[in-house]
Amino acid sequence: MNYNICTHIKDLLPDFIRDKVSSEYSLRVRSHLDTCTDCNDEFLILQKIQVATPIPPVDLAAKIKISVANDRRQTYWSPTWQFSFAAAVIIALGTTFIWQRTQNFPDTNQLIQESVLISWPMDDVVGGIPMFKDLSEDELITLLEELDG
């Protein structure tokens, strides 16, 4: 018995019995087991332990799937989720309100006044003061006569 080799082989035995070692290692382990009684005894014990693994009830997987599916549905609309959803809506509304308040929108009244000032000389040619100020008295009388006529 070589202590170092045996320690290494014993570390590998669980993988060996599960066919999880490379073919090269598998050959080495098999060859060692043929010559080392101590390691071979341990190998036989491990095989027995593996075979003694209990199997679950046949309907266990189905029961687990149903339980998990129900729980995932409930979790989706649980009070926590409902609270989170409500909180998200409140935060969204609040953020929108604050954003609107902080934006520099033009004053509506100012816009209307600007519109009047701009349109004044275009829309009201006759009544607008700017149109009369440069007229001579004769021209003004002529204009008034035309309007009356």
Binding site: P56, L60, I64, V68
Partner: peptide, 28 residues
């Protein structure tokens, strides 16, 4: 993974029915 989960529950709890319940709870 339900078989290995059941096996560990059984090893610790020691009762098959309770181990099945514990397996469900573990997955949940």
């Amino acid at each position: 993974h339900h078989a290995v989960v059941f096996s560990k529950c059984l090893a610790i709890i020691g009762d098959e029915d309770l181990a099945a319940d514990a397996s469900q709870e573990s997955f949940i």
